[in-house]
Design a protein around this nucleic acid. Sequence first.
DNA 1: GACACTTATTAAACGGATTTAATAAGTAAG
DNA 2: CTTACTTATTAAATCCGTTTAATAAGTGTC
Lengths: 343, 343
Amino acid sequence: MKFAVRRALRSSLLELGSGTKAELSEQLGISFPTVSKVLEQMTKEGEVHLLGLDESSGGRRANRYAFNPNYMLGLAVYYEKDQSVYTLFNWNGDLIERTVEDGILQAGPEALASQIRNWAHRYPKIRSIAVGMPASVRDGIIFHIPSYSAFQDFDLQAYLEEMYSIPVIVENDMNAAVLGYQNLSHSEEASLVYVYLGHNGPGAGLLINGNVVRGRSFFTGEIGYVPMSGDNNLLHVLDRRDSVMSSLVEPDEEQIDALSRLSATLTAILNPDAILWCEHNLLPSTLRSIKDRASAYVPQTHLPEMLLRPWEHDYIAGLQRLAMDMMISDTSTFINTTTTNGE
Amino acid sequence: MKFAVRRALRSSLLELGSGTKAELSEQLGISFPTVSKVLEQMTKEGEVHLLGLDESSGGRRANRYAFNPNYMLGLAVYYEKDQSVYTLFNWNGDLIERTVEDGILQAGPEALASQIRNWAHRYPKIRSIAVGMPASVRDGIIFHIPSYSAFQDFDLQAYLEEMYSIPVIVENDMNAAVLGYQNLSHSEEASLVYVYLGHNGPGAGLLINGNVVRGRSFFTGEIGYVPMSGDNNLLHVLDRRDSVMSSLVEPDEEQIDALSRLSATLTAILNPDAILWCEHNLLPSTLRSIKDRASAYVPQTHLPEMLLRPWEHDYIAGLQRLAMDMMISDTSTFINTTTTNGE
DNA sequence: GACACTTATTAAACGGATTTAATAAGTAAG
DNA sequence: CTTACTTATTAAATCCGTTTAATAAGTGTC
């Protein structure tokens, strides 16, 4: 059986928005008859719609096809201490519904699963769920989570997949955010660092040549430990007052210097394409100071782009992208047609 | 035409040393008849030899095949200021011939090509050439080379391939070394940092999740710029006396501290599997001091393996691996043996 | 040493995707 | 309105690797 062709067609249609059989065949390097047959089947199943006829380019007019954006839905969720944010979206990335609930992490996996159950029942078209967690994650297993011991070493992916028979992916918050930026900026092969300076201490998500870096012991991105001048490290410098966030509204010289050193260090080691900072952590003027000062440490031409970014937005975008990736590989239509628990 | 099967057979035979048709079919997931046909062809061409019959496992005894190690040869060369090292090896990685010539970089590409010409003529079986250079390289083009302006922005790969019609790959010295270590340690997906502390200032080769990192502007691994305490950076600290190498035979406290900070920084940012140091740069006791001190900056469990390595050895191994990769994909036998008439 | 049994290899049938040919649908010129 | 030409789609033939069946080559037993 050839899901492969269908997968390829899905991602091409996603990329192009719409396409004729000839275009798709050309783009994918798959022969016209094969594309034609699979597309025919997808049309019959309702996954693809016929948009109409193209303008003639001199001969017979071609049929133009597009994905039915509501054929599958994806659910992106992230959990933080004080809130849980659910985003339901369709194939186009359009927002269908968004709700913000209270924080639920302290209640453990069951509580989390029961909130998700709601969504799965209300929208049987949900074909994938992407879950963001403030934790180290590999292969769906939560390896290191600071304050919520119920999740420690818990295989959240298997747990949820078992429960709802829908593909689930679990990802760390900063990794999801950096994937989100990658997706929004269409930089497939880029090396990116997404820096977060928040309540739980600083942290970073790393993408190198387009791939997430996790590290041998899930310690990647623990930039709080980067040594600074004297006996300090970055965490010490940033955390000298009570709240990190408020302190950086008016950062002192040493804090600016520390972030410049971090930028220079990242440049000298990785030479990334961009460093992304959360816009609620830094003022634009602060970022300018950091950039200026960093060029004292490292030749300016090698400094990456430095941008202030809306973190929640990128985070959700990353989760959406992960959910989309799973939907592209979805095989459920081959096995049987959707069985829904009516209301 | 299906090179793919042949390529797969080559790499399987390389990995296993030898195999029966059934084993190879099993290992590759390719059907027995297909394996059989291609292997038959390879035997006819001399690329593969029949070793003999296996012991019976209860029924008919199976034919065992192995690669003819001398069917193709690879040439690995690296150029440094004072010497040029040529290594000729066969499919098994056995050394066939090794010569060390005087440094030739200052003479420019033509001189280099004429030395290579010698080898190509003496050994027409050479099917690939891997060239190591103390320079930033991407796609065979030399982008940044400190003292040898004749090579600046020169497409060395195209130049040599054009000249000898043999696949050529050009790679940076530290990148080749880290690839060499990866190969020798059989760690396909590892993240590794290979640190060099030498005459031209410190530098590092980075492998992340098994892939070479080059950086947006070829600045990856320029660890001399990593900021240290006060206004120093790593280069300043190491380079305070005339020769870096001699200074590190008896490094002072500050130099040990600098290398510890570097190790801690790499750990906090990348959390790699190993950091490799050139054994001619550091004494074992120095490395122990660095390790001890690094654990003051970063929790010890997250520190990578730290090893002293024979740099030239790893460098050559990396070049050999690159040459081997090209030989596995070699297609030249298809071109000149299109007519297969019996005699 | 014939016979049953196991495994390797070879030969033939099958299937799926591609290449090639045929047909349908449209445009523009005369 | 017919004809020549262009392009899209459908149908038939082909190619290639796999699945399946048949044959060859051993081993051990009675």
